[in-house]
Amino acid sequence: MASFKHYLELHFIVFVWGFTAILGKLISIPAVELVFLRTLIAAATLALIIKFTGKSFRIGRGPIIKIIGVGMLISAHWMLFFASARVASVSICLAGMATSSLWTAILEPIFYQKKIKPHEIGLALLIFLGLYLIFQFEFSHALGILMGVGSAMLGATFSIINSRLTRKYSPLNITCYEMAGACLGTALFMPIYQLFLSPDHAVHFTLTPLDWVYILTLALVCTVYPFTGSVRLMQRIPIFNMNLSINLEPVYGIVFAYFIFGESEHMSGGFYAGALIILFSVFIHPILDRRYENRQLQSTLPNGIGGAGHS
């Protein structure tokens, strides 16, 4: 049973996630090197936690390979996420990331052969309208918004796969192997990045003392704790309520970015109109989803039970 303490912790986790893109912009090294260090520190920390709490690393070779593969997907998701905040702005990045709930709604039926819900088609069109408004008024940030949307799609994909994994394996083990997979995926991508994407064909790991403070905060406070904490809270809080709370992340992030970065985060009216449409779609989705499920349940009941509203 969820208590006020559980809901307070959930909102604190969402609040922490709101700072992720801001930290990514504050750290001076490029996105690829940033993801490599973030995942290396997170994986090492989780491995130490597993070792010193006496838990087992063993979950079978097949599952480990699968989880490491999911981790590689996470590395691509994070590289696009941080690159979006760098080439455009934190607000643009988070506007793109706000589409993740809709990507989940679109991709989950494809992954698990579920029926596509009619209201989700309408919400998808509404989100594309919001993106069109952002593109029209902030076309100079087109690459940033595309990276943000791409990151959201990858994030939705890994979340869908993760939802099945968490039923079988310990959240601590899953997160540890996923962070190791993300670190490995970033390391494998690094030669391609160095040859074709790095401006000076080099990798950059020179960090200032302040960079180390930011990156340790990112790896420990914004990665290790929220990943394990959110999975643990799923055992207490209904997923409907969790989704409503997590949808506040882009709102927190955009507000924080404006106060931290000031005028550099100021956008046109078209951007805010488009972002509001996207956020409205994200917030209304679970409400419409709940009504759809109730109607589907009522339609399966015998006549006269729960069908008083049909005429």
Rank of each mutant, 00 (worst) to 15 (best):
Ala88Ile: 04
Val90Ser: 09
Ser3Cys: 07
Pro199Arg: 15
Tyr272Met: 00
Arg232Trp: 11
Leu34Asp: 13
Lys5Leu: 11
Thr53His: 03
Met179Arg: 05
Gln235Trp: 13
Ile160Trp: 01
Ile215Leu: 14
His201Phe: 15
Val255Lys: 07
Gly24Trp: 03
Gly144Tyr: 07
Gly18Lys: 02
Gly304Met: 04
Ala42Cys: 05
Asn173Asp: 09
Leu288Asp: 01
Lys114Thr: 05
Ser245Arg: 08
Leu244Ile: 09
Ala142Tyr: 15
Tyr292Val: 07
Phe283Gly: 02
Phe256Glu: 07
Ser170Asp: 13
His204Tyr: 14
Ile64Glu: 11
Ile27Phe: 02
Met97Arg: 03
Leu248Asn: 10
Thr53Val: 05
Ala76Asp: 06
Phe128Gln: 09
Glu108Asn: 13
His141Thr: 07
Leu184Phe: 08
Ala156Arg: 03
Pro191Ala: 00
Tyr193Asn: 06
Phe227Trp: 14
Ile287Phe: 15
Pro171Ser: 09
Lys55Asp: 06
Ser91His: 06
Phe137Ile: 09
Phe189Asp: 07
Ser163Cys: 05
Pro199Lys: 13
Thr223Asn: 01
Ser281Gly: 12
Leu133Cys: 03
Pro209Gln: 04
Pro109Lys: 00
Pro226Met: 00
Gly270His: 04
Ser101Thr: 14
Arg164Asn: 11
Ala21Gln: 06
Arg291Ala: 12
Glu265Arg: 01
Leu23Val: 08
Thr206Cys: 04
Tyr112Phe: 08
Arg38Pro: 02
